[in-house]
């Protein structure tokens, strides 16, 4: 074609891979994962039995190896609790004391019933569960809700 000039590629040297955009993208990815992610905590389960609010709970009263744990709120905000075992308030580090006493009283068929004020925070219930499991209690359950 007349008058049309094709530009020749002038660079005859080795083709270079452009790194700068790649680095940009990689940094973007890195920042995304830093912002959008979090370290995964180890989630675990307490294996609990259901509180049978009617019949079986009444029958529990007949059993001699029932350990009744009661958690009572010490202030309206529920920041502290009093721990009782079979109506006896536990002194000092109550949850450690609870574990010690449950271990001492443990039998093959012992049933630990965890009860408490309705507004007791779950973190304290989890501590009581922890003490009962650590003491080797074979059966743990929750009492029916207090009214």
């Amino acid at each position: 074609m007349k008058g049309m000039v094709y530009k020749k590629h002038l660079g005859k040297g080795r083709h270079k891979l452009e790194m700068a955009p790649l680095v940009d993208v990689v940094f973007q990815l890195l920042i995304f994962f830093l912002v959008a992610s979090e370290v995964r905590p180890t989630e675990a389960d307490f294996k609990t039995n259901l509180p049978a609010a009617e019949g079986p709970l009444d029958r529990r009263a007949e059993r001699k190896d029932v350990a009744r744990v009661y958690l009572r709120n010490l202030d309206p905000d529920g920041k502290a609790v009093e721990v009782s075992l079979n109506n006896e308030v536990l002194p000092g580090d109550a949850f450690k004391e609870l574990e010690r006493r449950l271990r001492a009283a443990r039998t093959e068929k012992m049933l630990v019933v965890i009860e408490g004020d309705p507004t007791v925070k779950l973190k304290f219930v989890a501590k009581a569960l922890d003490s009962a499991v650590a003491a080797g209690a074979p059966q743990i359950t929750f009492g029916k809700p207090q009214t």
């Binding site: 389960d45 259901l50 925070k121 779950l122």
Partner: peptide
């Protein structure tokens, strides 16, 4: 959360005959 909410949830499960419950915690 309040203990009574957990207890009530357990009773709601019992009402449909779910007896095996796992209560989650962070290890």
């Amino acid at each position: 959360s309040q203990f009574k909410e957990v207890q009530n949830a357990l009773i709601a499960c019992r009402d449909i005959e779910i007896w095996k419950i796992r209560l989650s915690a962070i290890k």
